[in-house]
Amino acid sequence: MRSCRSCLLLAAVLAVPLALPIASAAPPAPDTAASATVDPEAIGALTRMGKALRALPQFSMAATTRTEYVLDDGQKLALAGTVDYKVLGPDRFFVEIRSDHQHRQLFYDGHTLTIFSPTQKYYATVENLDRSSQALLSDSATRLGVEFPLADLFLWGTPGFPTQGITSALFVGSERIDGEPTRHYAFRQPGVDWQVWISDKNQLPRQLLITSHSDPALPSYQATLNWDTQRAVAASDLVFRPDGATRIAFVPVALAGDDADGKGAR
């Protein structure tokens, strides 16, 4: 039974929630709001952004986020947080997720994924993955029960993010994000509306706003991204050091749920 408790503790302590897909800061102009067409220029901007992301050999990215949660009575709460990525090559990264309610770190070296809770001092590992970062993040939610914030940064510009599923795409206008000129686009896919502000300077996404249609309350997620593509990412920054933390067994969240029902304790 002790191992099952460890599994459930892992699910509760180390589970990493995915940033929802995103919502609208301001309604588009009336003439564009009525349009449900796919503007080729908007798709082209998305393609250029994907190419810019895939061309980065390494980067650091710091994002400020705001996530909406819906209570049982339908009331929405908006909670602020931060997401920091350090990425080196196609298969090594570190991500840290912070808010007043959680603190998580994830390390991936192309072979092993380590999930660490610095507050509780517990960590778990998933070994023998042997995949690129893009391949890992494309199905980590369904395969491992681990959802990464801003995972689309690794999928844009790859077959993992086909544009054929976009049912509406439009250019909203030119805007400044923290003084930086950007072009604002809005997209719709089944179950989600999302917007992206793409930097005029480097074609990288500067802000995201995603609204999920899976809940009638339409919860949203917003992230403002700050990029550092010039400073070298040190390999040592991507190495997990236990430093007295306790290792616990990793099980996918779905299997941990089976244990909670008593199915996995036999």
Rank of each mutant, 00 (worst) to 15 (best):
Y69L: 13
L77V: 12
T125P: 00
A45E: 11
L170T: 15
A232R: 14
L208S: 03
T119E: 12
V253L: 13
Q230M: 08
F94M: 06
R247G: 01
V126Q: 06
T32D: 07
R54G: 00
P30D: 09
A124V: 01
C7H: 08
A62T: 13
F240E: 03
R206Y: 12
A26Y: 09
K121R: 14
I115C: 03
I177Q: 14
A26I: 05
L204H: 10
P40I: 02
K86F: 05
R48H: 07
N202Q: 14
A141I: 01
T37E: 13
Q207G: 03
D139L: 00
L113K: 04
L20A: 11
Q105W: 01
A62L: 14
F250D: 03
S174N: 13
R143M: 09
L204S: 13
R66W: 03
L218M: 12
A23N: 09
A25W: 09
L71C: 03
Q230K: 13
A19F: 10
I97Y: 14
N226V: 13
P216T: 12
G165L: 11
P242H: 09
G145W: 04
D73R: 08
G145S: 05
E41W: 03
R98I: 08
M49R: 00
D215V: 10
V146I: 15
Y122F: 15
A36N: 15
A249N: 11
L79R: 14
D91I: 01
G262L: 03
A52I: 04
V70N: 09
K201W: 09
R206L: 13
I248A: 06
F161L: 10
R188A: 14
D261S: 10
S60F: 00
A245E: 03
D258P: 00
I43K: 07
V239S: 01
V239M: 02
G110V: 02
R104D: 12
A25Q: 11
G165K: 14
E147H: 11
R241A: 15
N128W: 00
V126T: 03
H213T: 05
A19D: 15
T158Y: 00
V95D: 05
I177H: 09
E68T: 12
G74N: 08
G165R: 15
D109H: 10
G264M: 09
P17V: 09
L255M: 10
Q134N: 05
A42C: 05
N202Y: 08
A169S: 12
A186T: 12
P57R: 01
A135K: 04
R266K: 07
Q58W: 00
P118S: 11
V233Y: 08
R131F: 00
I198P: 10
S212W: 07
T47A: 13
T125D: 05
V83L: 04
Q134D: 06
R241N: 13
L10A: 11
P27H: 07
T119N: 13
V95T: 15
V38C: 04
